[in-house]
């Protein structure tokens, strides 16, 4: 057995010598073409949420900017570091990590490859204790989700106040995925704005503990609806689509998240937007243009990366005016939705 193992080591050594010529550069491609690698989190590409949107942004960049783009889906958290390292070690110009969960992995790999650009949606390159390492080659693509959350929250609050809910119970709900900052930002804005518009409102907040399985969000939403909630805001990616459909079945209203989700169910009256595709595209463009900058890039109403879109509903004009007014105030900085869920 020992001999066999030595044999394998020898073989590996030979393989290394052959490959050593390649090094970190990329002689196989033309010097000009920029290579971008996208590593998804465990939600996978068809998560109907930010992995998907990131992919949309990458596709747009491939079409518009003529870059080469590759993707690796992470099947589990063990794979973040190797998948990021894979792209970095092959001399990709930009390695995109998608999702909050990947922060320490980005921090680790970006430290090892200072000449490779990194970008991470919903986070930064951190150490194991989630302290931002402030690496110059890492772009943090952060969103003010609370802004989008506040806009749909205001909508729900207004409608309840005006007695336009299905039974006008003054109860609304939010179904989160896992209780983590990007999710809670949305819910914080939602609750804050709803209460601002309708002080008598009760906001039920539940978590499905999942970002992909619609069944789980459906059952949380059903519970909230059973407890008289009339608007369901899903903040759980693909899982949340189950919440939207549960709302549809129970003939109450719902709000989509991240992307425009009006097609998911007729009950969706609006979607709170988080334009991950815009962020990804912007980041890639900055590398192509040679204007890449490390550190935080904040996407918000300011740069039109958050907001809302109206879906399957004729919103009363006064409500729309109120919501747009709120958006303007937030944009102007006169009102600031909280990042943490208010009590």
């Amino acid at each position: 057995m020992v001999h066999k193992r030595l044999g394998i080591l020898g073989l590996a050594a030979v393989a290394l010598m052959i490959a050593a010529a390649c090094g970190g550069s990329s002689p196989g491609t033309t010097a000009k073409q920029i290579k971008v690698g996208l590593v998804t989190d465990t939600g996978g590409l068809n998560d109907k949420s930010f992995n998907h949107l990131a992919y949309v942004g990458l596709q747009k960049a491939i079409a518009d900017l003529g870059i080469k783009g590759d993707v690796i889906e992470s099947k589990n958290g063990d794979e973040y570091v190797p998948n990021l390292t894979n792209f970095a070690s092959k001399g990709y110009d930009l390695v995109l990590g998608n999702g909050f969960l990947m922060q320490p992995a980005i921090g680790t790999v970006a430290g090892q490859f200072p000449n490779v650009h990194f970008a991470i949606v919903d986070g930064a390159g951190t150490d194991a204790s989630f302290k931002d390492l402030k690496l110059p080659n890492v772009q943090d693509l952060l969103f003010k989700e609370q802004e989008s959350g506040a806009l749909v929250g205001a909508m729900a609050g207004m409608l309840e106040k005006q007695g336009k809910g299905p039974a006008n119970t003054h109860v609304i709900g939010a179904v989160g995925g896992i209780s983590i900052p990007p999710v809670n930002h949305y819910i914080a804005g939602y609750k804050w704005a709803a209460a601002m518009e309708d002080p008598s409102i009760k906001v039920l907040v539940g978590y499905s503990n999942d970002f992909s399985d619609p069944t789980k969000c459906s059952s949380v939403a059903k519970s909230q609806i059973g407890n008289k909630a009339e608007f369901i805001f899903q903040v759980a990616g693909g899982c949340g689509l189950g919440a939207l459909q549960a709302a549809g079945q129970a003939k109450v209203y719902s709000f989509g998240v991240d992307a425009d989700q009006k097609d998911a169910d007729p009950s969706v009256i609006a979607s709170a937007l988080k334009k991950v595709d815009v962020a990804v595209y912007t980041s890639i463009k900055s590398v192509v243009n040679g204007k890449f900058q490390g550190g935080e890039t904040r996407f918000s109403l300011q740069n039109d990366a958050t907001g809302y879109t109206l879906d399957n509903f004729n919103l009363p004009a006064d409500v729309k005016a109120e919501v747009d007014g709120l958006a303007a105030k937030i944009k102007a900085g006169t009102l600031t939705p909280p990042a943490d869920i208010p009590a």
Partner: peptide, 21 residues
């Protein structure tokens, strides 16, 4: 296994990753 690598893959890195798994 770090064998027959093309596309500028680094065999040593691959072996290391495999061992971690």
């Amino acid at each position: 296994l770090g064998a027959l690598c093309g596309g500028c893959e680094n065999p040593a890195l691959q072996i290391s990753n495999t061992i971690v798994f």
